[in-house]
Structures are given as structure tokens and as C-alpha cells.
């Protein structure tokens, strides 16, 4: 057992020696691996964040009823009463034009613009949750309440979320494709780096083979080299994701606040980090194994 451990430790030392011997080529490989991992991982995280954004609107669709600008309190009251007794309405919320304006004024980014207005241009608004949230049920309710007196426009809040979901679906497929292409690139990079290492250690391999080294013994340091590259690539990819999240949040979060949207990328979770490392290690080990086996076969 100790001899086995010692052989592995010896292979690891040899791997590190080779890494130090040609740091530039290895560093370049690690950088490319890191980008190959972080790009699809970053896109997935972005898509997931955007999906969460539209999730509520998709799963709990609401109608927003905008009253006509000349609607008086009696008209508003009539709509209120009608909604209160309507069997298709689960619940509703009323936002007066005064409250809406006050909400805008409370937003520091818009306060200046709102302050220049001579009169309140905002309509009285009802936000309605339908009992039947199916597209057909919502459409039926939308048509009905849209025909009521002084109701100028009825908007389905889920529409934008549906469009967003369709768009995200496309990007998700695109990211799947990109991830596959970059995984192939990662395999190719590790394959090529290990192949170069095998070729440059040709003499050493020949000597080891002649004096009784098994193929497993000869392969071992090269497999470690592949694993090390994958691991370093994963660590660097994690750092790139952290940096990307930080830059994204810094730029986009204030923009989201203008639309009352929580546009924020959370840091990668432990599970995500482990998954990233596992994918990197599995791909790099496979690439190294393939490379060292094929190159040794050719050398012999």
C-alpha cells in the first residue's frame, strides 16, 4: 500500500517537475480550459437568472387594467364593485394614479423627471389575478373587463414573460451547443498538451519501458498532468465566474432597479463549483488517457 502511494506521489512530483519545466505552454492551456469552462457556465447562470425573473409572471399571470384618463371616482368605484363580485376574479388590487405618481417620485432616479410634470399623467390601475390562469381563461377575462366603461386598456403581464421564455429557450439550446463545442475544444487542448509532453519525454519513456516499467506506470504522470490542467482550469474558471458576476451586478443591478427588477447574479454555489470541477476533471482525464495511450502506441 505504501509502495503504491509512493509511486503515485513520485508520479505527481514528476508531473509538477514537467509543469515547471514548460510553464508558458501549460499556463496557456490552463487559460484556454478556464475560458472553455467559464463561458458556457456563465451563460447558463445568466439564463437561469433571467428564467427566474420571468418565472413568477409565467406561473402567476395577472391582468393590468388601465382606466381612461378622464375616469372619475364613480367610474373607478363601478369597476371595483364589478371586480369584487365577478366569479372569474380571484383577487385584485387597486393603485390610484396618485399612489402611482408617489411611487415614481420615491425612486431617486426618476424623481427629477417626475417633478417637472405639470399634471399627473398616470391612469388609475387595477391589477387582477384570474381564477382560471390558463391562456384561454385569461383571454376571456381580458376581453370581458376590456369592454367595461372607462376601461381604456387591459394588458396581460405574462406576455413579456412568454416572449422571454421563448428567447431563453433559444439561448439555452445555443448554450448547450456551445458547451459541447467547448468541451471538445477542452479535450483537444489537453490531448495536444499531453501528446507534446509524451513526445518530449520519449527518451525517459523508452528507458523506463526497457527496465521494466508497465504501461500503467508510464501513463501515470501524464494522466496526473491532464488532471492537474483540468483542476487548474476549473479553479481559474471559478474565479472568472466570480469576477464576471461581480462586474455584471455592478453594471446591471442599477438598471434593473429602474424597472423594479432584481437583476442580480448570485455567486456560484458549492454544488455548481463541484460540478464544474468534476466536468473539468472527467474531460481532462479522458483526454489525457486517450492522448497518452495513442501516442505511446505510435512510439512503440
Amino acid at each position: 500500500m505504501m509502495a503504491w502511494l509512493h509511486q503515485h506521489a513520485s508520479a505527481a512530483r514528476l508531473t509538477l517537475r514537467r509543469l515547471v519545466h514548460s510553464p508558458f505552454a501549460n499556463l496557456l492551456g490552463v487559460l484556454v480550459i478556464a475560458f472553455a469552462l467559464s463561458l458556457p457556465a456563465g451563460l447558463y447562470r445568466l439564463i437561469n437568472a433571467a428564467t427566474l425573473l420571468g418565472h413568477d409572471a409565467l406561473h402567476d399571470p395577472r391582468l393590468t387594467m388601465f382606466m381612461a384618463s378622464d375616469a372619475d371616482s364613480a367610474a373607478v368605484r363601478a369597476v371595483w364593485d364589478a371586480l369584487a363580485v365577478h366569479s372569474e376574479v380571484l383577487e385584485f388590487r387597486y393603485i390610484s394614479n396618485t399612489d402611482a405618481l408617489a411611487e415614481l417620485k420615491a425612486n431617486p432616479a426618476l424623481a427629477d423627471v417626475v417633478g417637472t410634470l405639470e399634471h399627473n399623467p398616470l391612469p388609475h390601475t387595477f391589477i387582477v389575478r384570474a381564477r382560471d390562469s390558463s391562456p384561454a381563461g385569461l383571454e376571456s377575462l381580458r376581453k370581458m373587463v376590456g369592454s367595461w366603461n372607462k376601461v381604456e386598456r387591459v394588458q396581460m403581464d405574462g406576455e413579456w414573460a412568454k416572449r422571454l421564455a421563448a428567447l431563453l429557450g433559444f439561448f439555452r439550446h445555443f448554450t448547450h451547443g456551445l458547451a459541447i463545442v467547448l468541451a471538445v475544444a477542452l479535450v483537444f487542448i489537453v490531448f495536444n498538451t499531453v501528446r507534446q509532453q509524451v513526445l518530449s519525454a520519449r527518451d525517459e519513456i523508452e528507458v523506463a519501458h526497457l527496465i521494466g516499467a508497465t504501461s500503467r506506470y508510464i501513463r501515470r504522470p501524464f494522466l496526473y498532468s491532464g488532471l492537474l490542467q483540468g483542476l487548474m482550469g476549473a479553479v481559474l474558471a471559478f474565479l472568472l465566474l466570480q469576477l464576471g458576476s461581480h462586474l455584471f451586478n455592478e453594471e446591471v443591478e442599477p438598471l434593473g432597479a429602474l424597472f423594479s427588477l432584481n437583476l442580480q447574479l448570485r455567486p456560484p454555489t458549492l454544488e455548481e463549483c463541484l460540478l464544474l470541477a468534476l466536468v473539468a476533471l472527467a474531460l481532462s482525464w479522458s483526454a489525457a488517457f486517450l492522448s497518452v495511450s495513442l501516442t505511446l502506441k505510435r512510439l512503440r
Partner: peptide, 16 residues
């Protein structure tokens, strides 16, 4: 097999 042959070579001293 290749592994057994390698082990056999371990017990032979080779001078080139």
C-alpha cells in the same frame, strides 16, 4: 501479458 513481461524485465539487469 505486457504487465507480467514488464515485471519479468524488472528482475533482469540491462546494460546498453
Amino acid at each position: 501479458g505486457p504487465a507480467a513481461l514488464a515485471r519479468l524485465r524488472c528482475n533482469i539487469g540491462l546494460v546498453f
